[in-house]
Design a protein around this nucleic acid. Structure first.
Lengths: 246, 246
DNA sequence: CAGTGGTCTAGACCACCGG
DNA sequence: CGGTGGTCTAGACCACTGT
């Protein structure tokens, strides 16, 4: 007795179907390397066309939950491949996925004159003199994990206050509620660097300890730059993971 | 006078079409943020159905060459987004993309008893006592970039010799030609570490310098593990980049 | 409003895998 | 051989964008 894909639902059918299947996988109802029903079977089970079935499966394959073998079938990926999927996440979501309790301490929040590096990443016009800068210490299970500095170009006369950020805890929620900005895509680079005395002090490590530096430019719906973020992660407490395809 | 999508071609039509469009973009024929023809126009231009057009565009969007805006059109991504795309590549390909001439020095090649870490990543049976281990110094424009150690489980009695590897330069080519193993997917983790005296000596840096450690498990067509690789990159010469989506 | 991309259908043929 | 996924068609309607 399968769940039903609602043709009048808010979400597209392929998306509903992907959610149903993902749910069954994460609940362990479908075990690793076990085949799911064939596309023609799913057609009759859920009363949607094969194209829609394939769209749902495509999504789950990209998300790492399923893999296909031509001529054999579609199978459930082993559990470990379902973690560390390469998706755009906030620090908070990232920590929650790792089963770590996220926290933060706001160090600075206010308007600043953008340094050239920020000006370039945010694609600022030459006459733009003020951007919002937020510097936060990011905590995992109460211990410093990283030092985050982010920059935003907000509509004229608008801003975000420390009180608002403390109340919601998430800048993404504020950006969505106040300015309808939703992150959809980002470019990220990762490199290694060494902690300056100030950074070391904030992160509670020794000066000169190795850090992982992430720089990210985030784009909103209409592909406008909405954010430039630098995060210095403690090298001893952070590891990146990703799934690569060909 | 567009190129023609050959229905009898070796490659599927959506793939041929994607290649044609990608070519036009990288040649600069279509500039950044400029719209490409609409899907209905492309239908008549290339005489393929809209589904096939969309499949080609989907591919280029995932590869970072195009972006869509609902109700407006499909546009060419700015150049910087076309680099550092998150794909499974060999060290050699990776370097070539960065316009760096790759090189290598084979330090060790031979059968070893697998350490527990390798045993786990390669999913080796308990009675497996020998795997192929290859240690290479990887060069970029002649200068040490990284130290790579890779492990392979080969068919009984088969192996790869130093001479073969020196002749082709690429272990992936050998694995394909000798054993029909083609990499299709991988899981990768990145973290920071410090160079041991031996590593520092090989990489021509000071002991204790920061390194970027990449660990990768690579899967072949039938989703069998085919390789486990560790690469220690010089922190001062290497940077990772990726495109994230939601 | 017309034009765009987003979703969906019902069918077809091909290439690959296993018994 | 039958069953699987891979590709492809010709159409349809919806949701969104601009003017």
């Amino acid at each position: 007795m399968p769940e039903i894909v609602d043709p009048n639902g808010f979400l597209p059918r392929y998306y509903q179907l992907a959610n149903i299947l993902r749910e069954r996988i994460t609940r362990g109802e479908l075990a690793a390397h076990q085949p799911i029903p064939s596309e023609r079977q799913l057609e009759t089970i859920y009363s949607v066309s094969r194209t829609t079935i394939r769209q749902a499966i495509d999504l789950l394959v990209r998300q790492g939950f399923l893999y296909r073998e031509h001529g054999r079938g579609t199978f459930v990926s082993p559990q470990k491949l379902q973690k560390g999927i390469w998706e755009l996440t906030s620090f908070t979501e990232d920590m929650r996925r790792r089963s770590i309790t996220p926290g933060q301490k706001i160090l600075e929040i206010g308007e600043v004159k953008p340094p050239p590096e920020v000006r370039s990443h945010l694609e600022l016009p030459a006459d733009c003199e003020r951007v919002l800068c937020v510097e936060r210490l990011r905590l995992g299970d109460g211990v410093p994990m990283g030092l985050q500095t982010s920059y935003y170009l907000l509509p004229e006369g608008q801003t975000i206050t420390r009180e608002e950020l403390e109340a919601t805890g998430s800048i993404y929620i504020l950006l969505q509620e106040k300015f309808h900005l939703i992150p959809t895509e980002a470019d990220e680079t990762l490199e290694v660097c060494l902690a300056t005395p100030r950074e070391a002090n904030l992160l509670q490590i020794k000066a000169g300890s190795p850090l992982l530096l992430s720089e990210r430019t985030t784009y909103s719906q209409a592909r406008r730059v909405m954010e430039f973020v630098k995060i210095l992660y403690r090298g001893d407490r952070y590891r990146y993971s990703a799934k690569l395809t060909r």
